[in-house]
Design a protein around this nucleic acid. Structure first.
Length: 876
RNA sequence: GCGGGUGUGGUGGAAUUGGUAGACACGCCAGACUUAGGAUCUGGUGGCGUAAGCUGUGGAAGUUCGAGUCUUCUCACCCGCACCA
């Protein structure tokens, strides 16, 4: 063989990956158009925020999505596999402030950079459908949808308590508040009441909950998280009459001051109520504050309390006696009303009936303020003493000290007492949700403007649809101190569409979760110019058959998107009830962190490994290995995907990602694992080149030869088809790959043995193996398989091939190995004909010399024969 | 506190769902070969033992002819939510 031939037959990923990416691009191989002949399949990966560079999390996410897409294509489905950019958001503004440029320029530059990075991965996207959510077009139709939902009464404005950062002058989302401080400014966040726009997600609370039951293709964990987040509870809502205004404030009450609504899930404990508590923001608390400066001070101290976990855990139960009295609806007893720092205004009515004997918080509170504790539930034969008990009893039991309700089982009592409330006309059974309406107002520049106008005369007026889109002004100076839309000299000035008078625009922009709530719909008809969606095309492609993304979006994005989809269904934009049929949440990519005492967190290439210990390359000191954590810039434990792809090629990068762990599990980064993937692809390459050279022109076998080695190998090939297909369906890609590895190893072994190489039948079986290997591996490693397919003599590209079918005849075995156990312990193995009868198998086992020896001094009690598997002899 | 999950060799991970524990890969050991390559090939590799064998899936008990798999208890770690009345 000449020098140049040798060069050609060497696996060169850089060369052939460029070649095939160019081919796919030029021939528009992955362009998706609706087709009546083929079943549609919509695969979707969560679109990236254009931060500037792709990271390993992206590589994993998109590699998984691409396996699904390519596998479904080989199954002859019409696959839609789109990609785009989640392009609004705060990082663009922060970068713009730092670099004194414009968020749009920063964002589009990043998109260009990341697009070319993604293209080196060889992903089978329909790039013609690509868009960025900050494109005027997308923003336009989002505003249009906002107004349509406003017309449907699903959008409203109200005053709400928000996390306010007093330094940055903006509202912060809950997740942007870290330990009670603004994530950027570090200033203590205060709670402030502001006018905010809301989506009525609570209208859909019940459907969002019940809909989860039908989502069989979703991980249980995600469904549980959403269930908890929605937080449905059954209880009773009723009113206390309030008195004592004269005694407390020397003032007559107004009508609304004389009642107080409460919500309880424990109506069975009604007779144990010994006080009430209200939130600091409750009207009765405000009323008290008007007359009492101490109450005012107490309320203020409640509002400055941090919202972090830690702060809450340490927080003492504190209260302030309003002096007002609530009248117990059943006993008529007058009980005190406290303002309490642990009562939430945002849940239920902001006021609670307190039962210290049966609620731990109330118990602690009662102990602090010397309030009586009244036991009303206890187990039979177990007496609870309010004087000596050290914690609330929250378990089940029978009612005591409860007048007419005594001796009722407490679960039963919940119903009976709820009915009693209803009969008295003072309360009713209610369902409550933890879920709150979705506040979408953000005091930020780089977001989609809320298309509303405030007119002094007419109030809130929607921007007329023909005036859409409301676009962001370009001439702004970003300082981070204030929303540039507010301080812009002219942008917010406009005329009221109703009265024509001077008015001003809403200066808040939408939460960026808005964009991700309908991008999967827009992908179906990205070029539609006259409406947000082309419903015919949307209904062709929707719902998404397989969604792939990070578990971190389990609640927020996936709940918002489900809600928004249902809202759009109700205004006729789409037919299906749920947007995502199957959900795969991939695990994180993790790596050890390395810390140098003087230089802090080190990048992997800043530490030399010597005998398992690390030394800092800058100072030579011994660096310590920290926790194995999610790859993150802050810990420097990152590997740049570009380096990996440039060095080994995209196929190796993809193969490693998919082989190292099942998709839903965390994946530990390990350099030698990459080498393993690389070596396998080289082995594959060499084997197939070898087969092609030896058997050039041979047709892949369609029947099984008699030769036992070839028969066995062909059995292996078809067993591999079976295994890989099953693993594709259950999305366990690591085991699917290992099955192909086994097949390649078996093929290599047979060739190396040399016995059958000249055999014509051998050519058929090995050629079949080569073809099967290429097709089975194509979803994982598309470039090398395309090249090998061509080398095997195909003129049509691999995308037009079909997923191989199992030949049942090939799986039939002449002989099988059966295990013989004595008392469950492995004692011998037998090679027997595959079709052996139960009786003959038992006979063979009992006659085996190892078994005979083992049974010498014992009596056989029972023999269990499982055909095809084992014989277990029970003896003693 | 509530909810969910995971515990298997030196490492990542398999195990057709109750039937040979450790597939495949990394690493390691021994050897071969060479165009010294990111090599490649062959053999070995859970632990103890020279061996026959014993033992082994976080721990304890149970069901079963048979348990990594089912049941109960328990320990450890991870994730989510968290004063939700």
């Amino acid at each position: 063989m000449s020098e140049s031939d040798n060069q050609q037959t060497k696996y060169n990923p850089q060369l052939l990956e460029t070649k095939w990416q160019g081919f796919w691009d030029k021939e528009q191989i992955f362009r998706a158009t609706p087709s009546p002949d083929k079943e549609k399949y919509y695969v979707l990966v969560m679109f990236p925020y254009p931060s500037g560079r792709i990271h390993m999390g992206h590589v994993r996410n998109y590699a998984i999505g691409d396996v699904v897409a390519r596998y479904q294509r080989l199954q002859n489905k019409n696959v839609l596999n789109p990609i785009g950019w989640d392009a609004f958001g705060m990082p663009a503004e922060n970068a713009a402030i730092q670099k004194k440029s414009h968020p749009a320029k920063w964002t589009y530059d990043n998109i260009d950079a990341m697009r070319s990075e993604l293209k080196t991965m060889g992903l089978s996207y329909d790039w013609k459908r690509e868009f960025a959510t900050c494109d005027p077009d997308y923003a336009h139709w989002e505003q249009d949808l906002f107004l349509k939902l406003y017309d449907k009464n699903l959008v409203y404005r109200k005053k709400a308590l928000v996390n306010w950062d007093p330094v940055d002058n903006t509202v912060l989302a809950n997740e942007q508040v870290i330990d009670g401080k603004g994530w950027r400014s570090g200033a203590a966040v205060v709670r402030k009441e502001l006018s905010q726009w809301f989506f009525k997600i609570t209208d859909y609370a019940d459907e969002l909950l019940t809909g989860l039951e039908k989502l069989e293709g979703w991980p249980e964990t995600v469904k549980t998280m959403q269930t908890n987040w929605i937080g449905k509870s059954h209880g009773v809502e009723f009113e206390f009459k309030i008195t004592g205004h004269k005694e407390a404030f020397a003032k007559e009450p107004t009508a609304e001051d004389t009642t107080m609504g409460v919500y309880t899930t424990r109506p069975d404990t009604i007779m144990g109520v010994t006080f009430c508590s209200v939130a600091a923001e409750h009207p009765l608390a405000k009323l008290t504050a008007q007359h009492n400066s101490e109450a005012q001070a107490f309320i203020q101290s409640c509002q400055s309390t941090g919202t972090s976990e830690e702060a809450l855990e340490k927080l003492e139960k504190k209260g302030f006696d309003t002096g007002l009295k609530a009248i117990h609806p059943f006993t008529g007893e007058k009980i005190p009303v406290f303002i309490a720092n642990f009562v939430l205004m945002s849940y239920g009515t902001g006021a609670v009936m307190a039962v210290p004997a049966h609620d731990q918080r109330d118990f602690e509170f009662a102990k602090t303020y010397n309030i009586p504790i009244k036991v009303v539930i206890q187990n039979d034969g177990e007496a609870l003493d309010s004087q000596t008990m050290t914690e609330a009893y929250t378990g089940p039991g029978k009612l005591i000290n409860s007048a007419e309700f005594n001796d009722l089982d407490n679960e039963n009592a919940k119903k009976i007492i709820a009915e009693a409330f209803d009969k008295k006309g003072i309360g009713k059974a209610t369902i409550n949700y933890r879920l709150r309406d979705w506040g979408i107002s953000r005091q930020r520049y780089w977001g989609n403007p809320i298309p509303m106008i405030n007119c002094e005369k007419c109030g809130v007026v929607p921007v007329p649809v023909e005036q859409l889109p409301v676009t962001l002004p370009d001439d702004v100076e970003l300082t981070g101190a204030q929303n540039p839309l507010v301080i812009h000299p002219t942008w917010k000035l406009c005329n009221c569409p109703k009265c024509g008078g001077a008015a001003h625009r809403e200066t808040d922009t939408m939460d960026t979760f808005m964009e991700s709530s309908w991008y999967f719909l827009r992908y179906c008809s990205p070029d539609e110019q006259n409406a947000p969606l082309n419903t015919k095309e949307v209904n062709h492609w929707m719902p998404v058959d397989q969604y792939v993304g990070g578990i971190e979006h389990a609640v927020l994005h996936l709940l918002y998107a489900r809600f928004f989809h249902k809202a759009l269904r109700d205004i006729g934009e789409v037919d299906c009830d749920e947007p995502f049929i199957n959900l795969l949440t991939q695990g994180m990519v993790r790596k050890d962190t390395i810390n140098c005492p003087t230089h802090g967190w080190l990048y992997p290439n800043e530490a030399d490994e010597i005998d398992g210990k690390f030394k800092c390359v800058k100072c030579g000191e011994v660096a310590t290995v920290g926790r194995n954590e999610k790859m993150s810039k802050s810990k420097n434990n990152v590997i740049d995907p570009n380096d990996l792809i440039a060095g080994y090629g995209a196929d190796t990068a993809r193969l490693f990602m998919l082989f190292a762990a099942p998709p839903d599990q965390d994946l530990e980064w390990n350099e030698s694992g990459v080498d393993g993937a690389w070596r396998f692809l080289n082995r594959l390459w060499r084997l197939l080149v070898d087969i092609q050279e030896r058997y050039n022109g041979a047709k892949p076998a369609t029947t099984t030869p008699k030769n036992s080695a070839l028969k066995e190998l062909r059995g292996k090939v078809h067993e591999t088809i079976e295994r890989v297909t099953r693993d594709m369906e259950r999305k366990q890609y690591n085991t699917g790959i290992s099955a192909v590895m086994e097949m390649i190893n078996a093929g290599g072994k047979l060739l190396a043995a040399g016995e059958v190489t000249k055999d014509q039948e051998a050519g058929g079986v090995l050629m079949e193996l080569a073809h099967v290997a290429v097709v089975l591996l194509n979803p994982y490693t598309p470039h090398i398989t395309e090249e090998l397919w061509q080398m095997l003599g195909h003129e049509e590209h691999l995308g037009l091939a079909k997923w191989p079918k199992v030949d049942p005849e090939a799986l039939v075995k002449d002989e099988i190995t059966v295990v013989v156990q004595i008392n469950g312990k492995l004692r011998s193995r037998l090679t027997v004909p595959a079709n052996i009868s139960k009786e003959d198998l038992e006979k063979a086992a009992m006659g085996d010399e190892k078994i005979v020896a083992n049974l010498a001094n014992v009596t056989v009690r029972k023999v269990i024969v499982i055909p095809g598997r084992l014989v277990n002899i029970v003896a003693n």
